[in-house]
């Protein structure tokens, strides 16, 4: 999946020097329509995105990752708190495999539902494994003298996002 900003699409369409197909109504009135326009636009757009990826000229990337049943929008240097115990030691770096989306200012790669593991890589370092604040779970039964208090603290694992990289051109 590929989505391009309208401004980029407009500049690409003008570079093609073909009258853009704006609505179905025009096609019905019998204008000459370039049959290969769609495939050529796609090729040009992919080329523009791949050019940025190969040269590394794209802006800062962000990604939507799927972790422990939740989705996080992350970019490099972020911290996220995951409400679980991970079997990873402090200071160890892991790679987050389930990437739903990766994007810069000019393009967005949307997974269906996940992006290819070889395409986008997101690394994170475990910086903290801790417990949350203590809260009370109160159990109470009406008209009896049943009252119980249990105290509990949630587990948290803090991850520092080291970086996001697009490893290869997108149409290969």
């Amino acid at each position: 999946m590929l989505r391009v900003l309208p401004s980029v699409a407009r500049s690409l369409a003008s570079s093609l020097s073909v009258r853009p197909l704006t609505s179905k109504a025009q096609a019905v009135t019998g204008e000459i329509v370039d049959q290969n326009r769609e495939s050529r636009v796609i090729k040009t757009v992919l080329g523009a995105v791949n050019d940025q990826i190969e040269k590394g000229t794209h802006s800062r990337l962000f990604a939507v990752i799927y972790l422990h049943g939740k989705q996080f929008k992350v970019t490099a240097e972020d911290i996220i708190a995951v409400n679980t115990v991970m079997p990873v030691g402090i200071g160890e770096t892991i790679r987050l495999n389930k990437i739903l989306l990766a994007a810069s200012t000019d393009f967005t790669l949307i997974g269906r539902p996940l992006l290819d593991q070889d395409l986008v890589r997101v690394y994170a370092t475990v910086i903290e494994r801790t417990l949350g604040h203590e809260y009370r779970i109160f159990k109470f039964r009406q008209r009896t003298r049943y009252q119980r208090s249990y105290f509990y603290r949630q587990n948290y694992t803090m991850l520092r996002i080291n970086g996001i990289e697009i490893a290869r051109p997108i149409d290969q």
Partner: peptide, 17 residues
């Protein structure tokens, strides 16, 4: 240890898109 976590992510960068 008595402090409660208010938000599950922190970032220092502005919105990218």
């Amino acid at each position: 240890s008595n402090q409660k976590l208010l938000k599950y992510s922190a970032t220092s960068s502005i919105s990218i898109q």
